[in-house]
Design a protein around this nucleic acid. Sequence first.
DNA 1: GCTTGACCTATAGCGCGCTATAGGTTGTGT
DNA 2: ACACAACCTATAGCGCGCTATAGGTCAAGC
Lengths: 152, 152
Amino acid sequence: MDRVPPALTPHLDVDVPDEGLSIGEAAVVVGLSVQALRYYEREGLLLDPTSRRSNGHRRFHRNDLDWLLGLVMLRETGMPIAEIRDIAALSRAPGTERERLEAFELHRQAVLAQLKRTQEHLAALDKKIAAYRAYVAGEEETIHDEQPPARP
Amino acid sequence: MDRVPPALTPHLDVDVPDEGLSIGEAAVVVGLSVQALRYYEREGLLLDPTSRRSNGHRRFHRNDLDWLLGLVMLRETGMPIAEIRDIAALSRAPGTERERLEAFELHRQAVLAQLKRTQEHLAALDKKIAAYRAYVAGEEETIHDEQPPARP
DNA sequence: GCTTGACCTATAGCGCGCTATAGGTTGTGT
DNA sequence: ACACAACCTATAGCGCGCTATAGGTCAAGC
């Protein structure tokens, strides 16, 4: 019984102090630049208004970081800023769980399609590589003169 | 014995007439816009100078289209224009097969990494979706009032 | 004969997603 | 006391990859 229940939300492997992280620290843990973080905030991609210290400095808490990780996932799977903004807005409104689910399912389809295309491309790339390897190997043993490959 | 030997080069399933295709037709078969095709030519991404009719109109032949398909593959797997330009230059120079192979192998690594990352993201997305599905389902049977999910 | 459409060149413009710069405050270390 | 780093806002700028526009030629069809 040392199994941990699966988290419902992307879960950070760093432990976040109660007072939260500075923007610089947060940037490091979520893999963004400080400017990008501020930019995302301006663009309304963050779930909650960022909490601030008395001096105005932002503080990022666990939930902020979890949200950011999800955000990064969406971005890196090709979702544009505008769409993420919509999802953020939806996620702020109670009772919109169905719609959020729908949005995520739709995006899932897009990611699957993209993945499939990339795998096909990879296969084509592998073929090209194989052809070149064959040519290069052939050239190695034939000390002199041969047909170059059909210039692929 | 009706097996066809595997092609060394991306092979088009359309048959190209001897006089080649117009830029509009070529654009359709390779899945680019006419402007993008012209842009690629200007940027030096094409293997050979495009052949022209007496009236100056471009004609795309089989080998052009094959090359373009490879180009599209590289683009869609995230290779920037500049890098493709380098590969094109290399592919024009004889005796650079090793270097081309190297370039393709390097890109293959990049594609693999990208693929892996996307698959991880997909897993995360699936988790999120599962959580939402569970919540939405739970809400359906409980006629009234329940905890919303931990706002993922 | 005239319009229509596909092509041509040259060049400007745009959308996206940041990134950089200027100018300023705060807090910490030496 | 002061320099230095990390943060702040506001705003401008940029790199990439096209896309759009202007202005023109040519060939085919009505």
